[in-house]
C-alpha cells in the first residue's frame, strides 16, 4: 500500500517536473519572493501606482519577448526584434505624421510592415540557409540604418494624430474601475500573449513550431515543408514586433530612430528566465510573461530601494544565471 503510494507520488512528481510546469512554478515563486521582499523593504513598492508602473514597464519588453519566444521555441534566435520594433515605429510615423493617414489605417499598416520584414528574415534563413544568428544580426543593423535614414535621424512626433498616445497610455480599465488605471499597453501585451499562446497551443502552426525546435530533420522527413513554416514563424514574430513598435511609439509620442538596440537581449533574457530552452522545442507564453515581469520587478524594486545602479545591473545578471541554472538542473533531472 505504502509502496504504491510512494510510486504514485514519484510518478506525479516526475510528470510535474518534466512538464515545464515545474519551472514555471519555480519562476512564479521567484517572482513572488521578489515581490514580498521588495514590499517588506519599502512601503512605496506595493502601491497601486507603482504596480502599474511595473506593468507598464513590462509592456514593450513583454511583447518583444513574445516575438522572441516564438522564434526560440522553433529552434532559432532573433536578434533583430529590438530594431525591427524601432523600424515599425518609424514607419508608423511615416504613415501617420508624414502621410497623414488615419490611425485605423496607419497602425495596421505598420504591423504589416513588421510582418513583411519578418518574412524577409524567414526567407534568408529558410531559403538561403543563412544561420538565424547571422541573418537576424544583419537585419538588426539594416533596420537600424533604415530607421535613421527614413526619418533623417530626427524623431518623428505624433502630435498631429490625436488619440495616438491613448493606444499605450490611455486606460480603458481605468474608465470602468477608476481605482486601477491599468494602461492600455498592458492590456495589449495581455491580448498579444493570449493570442500567441493560442497559436502555439491550439493550431497546426504551433505544433510545427515545437516540432521544428525539437527535431527539424524529423519534421522534414515526415513530409512537412519546414521551410514554409519557418518563414511563417519569422513573419509572426515580425508582426508581434510591429505591435511593440506601435506600443513604444505611442508611449513616448514619437518614433525615435536611435532606440531599440539592446532590447533584443532583454527580450531573450525574459524568455530564458521563463524557462524556454534556447535549444528550442519547449517553452511557454506564461513562462515568458513571468520572466518579463521578473525583469521589470527587479529593475523597479531596486530603484525603489535606491540601490546604486552599478549593483542593479549585477543583480539582473545574477538572476539570469540563476534562472538558467535551475533550468539546467531540471533538465538533468528529467533526461
Amino acid at each position: 500500500m505504502n509502496l504504491v503510494a510512494e510510486v504514485d507520488r514519484q510518478r506525479i512528481l516526475d510528470r510535474v517536473k518534466s512538464s515545464g510546469a515545474y519551472h514555471r512554478l519555480l519562476a512564479f515563486s521567484g517572482l513572488l519572493v521578489l515581490m514580498i521582499g521588495f514590499s517588506l523593504a519599502s512601503p512605496n513598492f506595493l502601491q497601486t501606482a507603482n504596480v502599474i508602473n511595473i506593468l507598464q514597464a513590462t509592456s514593450v519588453n513583454g511583447v518583444l519577448a513574445v516575438a522572441a519566444t516564438i522564434v526560440i521555441i522553433s529552434g532559432g534566435i532573433d536578434l533583430s526584434v529590438g530594431t525591427l520594433m524601432t523600424f515599425c515605429s518609424v514607419m508608423a510615423g511615416v504613415f501617420l505624421t508624414y502621410w497623414g493617414l488615419p490611425i485605423f489605417v496607419g497602425v495596421p499598416l505598420a504591423i504589416v510592415v513588421g510582418t513583411c520584414c519578418g518574412t524577409v528574415t524567414g526567407l534568408l534563413i529558410a531559403k538561403l540557409k543563412i544561420p538565424p544568428f547571422i541573418a537576424t544580426l544583419g537585419m538588426m543593423l539594416i533596420y537600424r540604418g533604415m530607421s535613421l535614414a527614413i526619418c533623417a535621424a530626427k524623431p518623428i512626433y505624433f502630435n498631429s494624430t490625436p488619440g495616438f498616445t491613448d493606444i499605450s497610455t490611455g486606460t480603458i480599465v481605468g474608465a470602468v474601475i477608476p481605482e486601477i488605471p491599468v494602461p492600455n499597453g498592458v492590456l495589449i501585451l495581455f491580448l498579444v500573449s493570449m493570442l500567441v499562446a493560442f497559436v502555439l497551443g491550439r493550431t497546426i502552426l504551433g505544433r510545427f513550431i515545437f516540432a521544428m525546435g525539437s527535431n527539424e530533420e524529423a519534421l522534414r522527413l515526415s513530409g512537412v515543408n519546414s521551410d514554409q513554416w519557418k518563414i511563417a514563424v519569422y513573419s509572426l514574430a515580425g508582426a508581434v514586433c510591429g505591435v511593440a513598435g506601435i506600443l513604444i511609439a505611442s508611449r513616448i509620442n514619437s518614433a525615435q530612430p536611435s532606440i531599440g538596440q539592446g532590447y533584443e537581449l532583454d527580450a531573450i533574457a525574459a524568455v530564458v528566465i521563463g524557462g524556454t530552452s534556447l535549444s528550442g522545442g519547449r517553452g511557454t507564453m506564461l513562462g515568458t510573461m513571468i520572466g518579463a515581469l521578473i525583469i521589470s520587478v527587479v529593475a523597479n524594486g531596486l530603484r525603489i530601494l535606491s540601490v546604486p545602479q552599478e549593483w542593479q545591473i549585477v543583480v539582473t545578471g545574477t538572476i539570469i544565471i540563476v534562472a538558467v541554472y535551475t533550468d539546467i538542473l531540471r533538465h538533468r533531472a528529467t533526461v
Binding site: N44, N50, V60, I252, Q261, R303
Partner: peptide, 20 residues
C-alpha cells in the same frame, strides 16, 4: 544604460515618482 533609451528613462522617472 545606453544613451537614447527614451522608454527606459520613463520607467526610471515613474519609479522615482513612487518614492515621493
Amino acid at each position: 544604460d545606453g544613451e537614447g533609451a527614451v522608454d527606459r528613462q520613463l520607467d526610471m522617472l515613474s519609479a522615482a515618482l513612487a518614492k515621493h
